[in-house]
Design a protein around this nucleic acid. Structure first.
Lengths: 343, 343
DNA sequence: TTCTCTACTGTGAACGCTCACAGAAGCATG
DNA sequence: CATGCTTCTGTGAGCGTTCACAGTAGAGAA
């Protein structure tokens, strides 16, 4: 029983305790802690032994106070909160970022900027230097928080190409256009010629790019573009359902649909089913994301995989580089067609 | 242009700057910052004006260094990570906790303890005092991290009744048994008599309680208990699908199913559909959670709402109370039957 | 007047760490 | 022998707060 456990916590050992235990000075312990340059092997060893023995863990507040760094980063969501809950992609991204940061021993602070007040509070918190950088999820345009952070010089990496922030903001994104091309080519290769599309929100680069890829392939295949085959959605399940209904009205002969998100594709499947169309026999359906929703759908969705694990890893890499003084960077990652039952 | 914006960030104002600006001492500013007791109205006013003028934000690291508090809490997930992504409840809980904490200006640190290494690192981080308390999501038994934290005297609030941690750990949970009772009563009230159940994992209190509620109502209604009507799952969609298949084999005359989670209920619906049973005409299906999955299902699920917003709010309240020195507490919250299309 | 009490204010010390600097020791070079 | 260089080590200062304490001013009571 080394620990009296009556509610209060014992005062943890300090760098001083370690120094005394190892028979060296605070400075030497600090040097060992920070890379071990200019430390003799003997001292190195003694300090490490003392750290193990005392169970020392550095006090990050004391360190931050003098270094000016916080050694933590924020994960900021300025989207309308609903999307967060409905879209499984956020989970995957959040998890990936948390783990990638954990590998660097950097905690992730979750920040949800929903209301005006929350936005103000969070902006203050960040610009006050309480985090070293921010991972940003905000695909819609005109985001005042992001703009303010950028102006304040806070290292920032967005997920997906941000709008209206100039070229000074780093971002990591999947190759939306190329992914869309792959999917539409796949649908054409099945012999379908009346290929519809349910787009994402067209005020986001992702939405625009996926639509552009669709058009490109139709052009290159010599299949005419028919605007009755195009309806727009907002990535939500409900908008997919509504979109499919509109599509069936405008172009009843549709024999394939490229849907710009898996969640919308779920809605499309439901609407088609209700209309008595069989998938994939009557209408082939292709999604986008390869989110958990793709496997949960029935039939399971053929979709375009966004490499979320790589996206999150790259976001963290770019952010840390930027915190380290490097210039902003843009990273585009390749997508992959995943064939399942819906095509 | 008050801010030179060439990459570096300007040194933020300190309490000293505010004191000089307001013509008072650091101590007075500090008192205003911490509640304003024993401060004259005039000084109060002057300090607030100076804070607004300078844009001062307290340096939390300096504060933490001396107070010993970190004014932050961890949100710790020790579940197998997959559940996190599949189960929409986690999102709602995470969001609720983040927002409830934000109201107290307390940041939430997301901690995912998947691997052994991660567990060790996180345990060290927490016991070193880098967070004041922990919100714990870990319904399965034998969680070494939780036990270690409890032993170290870290304020801890679990979501759902934890197993094997003695009574010293606070928790907040929905009234699982009562919810199950409501649902089964509802199914009986529809005239169904062959009511099956797909349970949750039976090494968790939630799973056990929901099954107990089911049995209680059958007993009280004089409907005999038939073990062929009972299959067990693990809250995952896939296990619901498998469970329903087993149920149809063991008891083909089943006319209602109480499923212990919405996600499993999705799987049950899929399996029933495949087997040619109509819902709700042939088989009524009741879920549990009222997660987004309930509305996404087709037909939309009748389910038992867990009051996630209240659960998260209570978790935060209890945790902060405990950090403030109060004793651990258990909170049980009522559930609510939500009728939709599946019954 | 003198004392006590309350309301308020300022000051130095401390929290635990890193950083800059000074210096010691060892070795090669002039 | 002095000089310089490299490698290593210890020391004092200071990061921006809070806290304990000392002190002041004014009001009321003796």
């Amino acid at each position: 029983m080394t620990m009296s456990n009556t509610g209060g916590r014992r005062r943890p050992p300090t760098i001083h305790d370690v120094a005394r235990e190892a028979g060296v000075s605070r400075g030497t312990v600090s040097r060992v802690l920070n890379g071990g340059h200019y430390v003799s092997p003997a001292a190195q060893e003694a300090v490490n032994a003392a750290i193990r023995k005392t169970g020392y863990v550095v006090n990050r507040h004391a360190r931050s106070l003098i270094t000016g760094r916080s050694d933590s980063v924020g994960f900021l969501l300025t989207e309308p909160q609903e999307r967060f809950f409905e879209d499984p992609n956020f989970n995957v991204l959040l998890r990936g970022c948390t783990q990638a940061l954990a590998a660097h021993d950097i905690p992730l602070l979750l920040m949800l900027a929903g209301t005006r007040d929350e936005r103000r509070r969070i902006t203050r918190y960040i610009t006050a230097g309480h985090v070293d950088g921010v991972l940003l999820v905000s695909s819609h345009s005109g985001d005042p928080v992001a703009e303010e952070l950028r102006a304040a010089g806070v290292p920032l990496v967005a997920c997906g190409k941000p709008i209206g922030l100039g070229s000074k903001v780093s971002y990591v994104a999947a190759d939306d256009r190329d992914g869309a091309r792959d999917m539409v080519r796949h649908l054409l290769s099945l012999g379908r010629r009346r290929v519809g599309v349910v787009t994402g929100p067209l005020d986001t680069p992702g939405g625009v790019e996926r639509l552009a890829g669709y058009r490109e392939v139709l052009d290159e295949a010599g299949v005419g573009f028919d605007e009755r085959l195009v309806v727009s959605g907002d990535y939500s399940r409900a908008s997919g359902e509504a979109g499919a209904e509109r599509l069936l009205t405008q172009a009843p002969d549709v024999d394939a649909v490229f849907v710009a998100s898996d969640l919308m594709a779920q809605g499309v499947l439901a609407a088609l089913q209700r209309a008595g169309r069989r998938v994939p026999e009557d209408v082939a359906v292709g999604g986008f994301d390869d989110s958990p929703a793709a496997v949960a759908a029935s039939p399971e969705l053929t979709t375009i995989r966004q490499p979320w694990d790589r996206i999150s890893a790259e976001m963290v890499r770019v952010l840390l580089a930027q915190i380290g003084g490097e210039d902003p960077a843009a990273v585009i990652l390749p997508t992959e067609l995943v064939r399942r039952k819906s095509t």
